[in-house]
């Protein structure tokens, strides 16, 4: 199967699980709402009856922010005007790419780990549904059945990510610093740094792809010894690099293109009416939902690819037997 076919087949299959994506979105939204309300209250309290409220509605008020940030406590301290528009993505993308996403204030780390578990659970359900669409076992039962194995896979993947983003990335960073110690041309450091991130993130994405296929293989083969799954997935990606890699980067490019589109259209700070504020919020939610859908899309398309490659392998085995 060509990557492009798996890509579109996967897209079709997302619709079969749309309500589960809806559930995961609701969880995400509720977590954000819970903490967002605390930040909102802090902003509200800081404004009181001040005219700063009007300025904040019209746009942004740096004087208010100066006062607010100087006295903010807890979560409110994480508020920054750069959360507006594309900044909401880029601020986190920066942390993500530089391997500092989990070096955040404690509450975000715990929340992130909880959310990881949520996704681990739902991934089990999604993959089960894609691998065995006719299985009488429901989404929730499948998710519960495979969850423990997916947790083990997540831990294994986490060790790999930690090694790459903690060890390799930092190691390369130190090496580049040493290499460019006497460099006076910023472009040299610029491109070497880009190469560093590209090199590490190609490995991270490869690892991510291996563990995607590991999850699919675990469900497909109902593997009990889950540590075998990454070995099989690793072999699969090595045997079919163009197909597996092509599909992965096709999906990744889709995400990148939508990100660029969001960058161009993301609402900034100019909403001055309740309707405009809500519209901006809802527009932002569409992109959040897209990102969740994209993650599921990876699973659905990669499942199609996996099944296709498996059946080709099986056919080849039978022909060889004959």
């Amino acid at each position: 199967m060509k990557p492009i076919r798996a890509y579109f087949l996967g897209l079709k299959r997302i619709w079969q699980v749309k309500r589960y994506i809806g559930v995961i979105y609701l969880i995400n939204l509720l977590l954000a709402l819970g903490l967002g309300s605390l930040v909102g209250q802090a902003i509200y309290r800081s404004l009181g009856k001040s005219l700063a409220a009007e300025r904040l509605v019209q746009g942004f008020d740096p004087h208010w922010y100066g006062s607010f940030s100087a006295t903010a406590q807890g979560l409110a301290r994480t508020f920054h005007p750069a959360v507006v528009g594309i900044g909401a993505v880029f601020e986190n993308l920066n942390q993500f790419l530089t391997g500092r996403l989990f070096s955040e204030p404690g509450i975000f780390v715990w929340l992130g780990l909880l959310y990881l578990l949520v996704w681990t659970f739902f991934s089990a359900g999604f993959v089960s549904r894609f691998v065995r669409p006719d299985d009488p076992e429901g989404f929730w039962q499948s998710a519960a059945r495979f969850m423990p194995r997916f947790v083990i896979l997540a831990i294994m993947a986490g060790i790999g990510y930690y090694f790459l983003l903690g060890g390799v990335l930092n190691g390369l960073g130190g090496w580049i610093r040493s290499l460019t110690r006497e460099t006076t041309d910023e472009r040299v450091v610029f491109f070497l740094t880009l190469v560093k991130y590209l090199a590490v993130w190609i490995l991270v994405w490869w690892l991510n792809m291996i563990f995607d296929y590991s999850r699919i293989a675990t469900v497909y083969r109902d593997l009990r010894m889950v540590w075998l799954a990454p070995i099989e997935a690793f072999g699969l990606t090595l045997r079919h690099p163009l197909k597996t890699g092509g599909l992965y980067y096709l999906l990744g490019t889709t995400g990148l293109l939508v990100l660029l589109g969001y960058w161009m259209t993301a609402p900034g700070a100019g909403q001055s009416t309740a309707t405009a504020v809500w519209m901006a919020f809802l527009f932002g939610q569409l992109y959040v939902i897209f990102r969740m859908g994209l993650r599921v899309w990876f699973y659905s398309s990669q499942t199609e690819m996996y099944l296709s490659l498996r059946s080709a392998t099986n056919r080849q085995s039978k022909e060889d037997d004959l």
Binding site: L31, A32, L33, L35, G36, F79, V83, V277, F281
Partner: peptide, 9 residues
Amino acid sequence: ASKWMIWLQ
């Protein structure tokens, strides 16, 4: 706060 929420999401 809604913009912060999107950031958190």
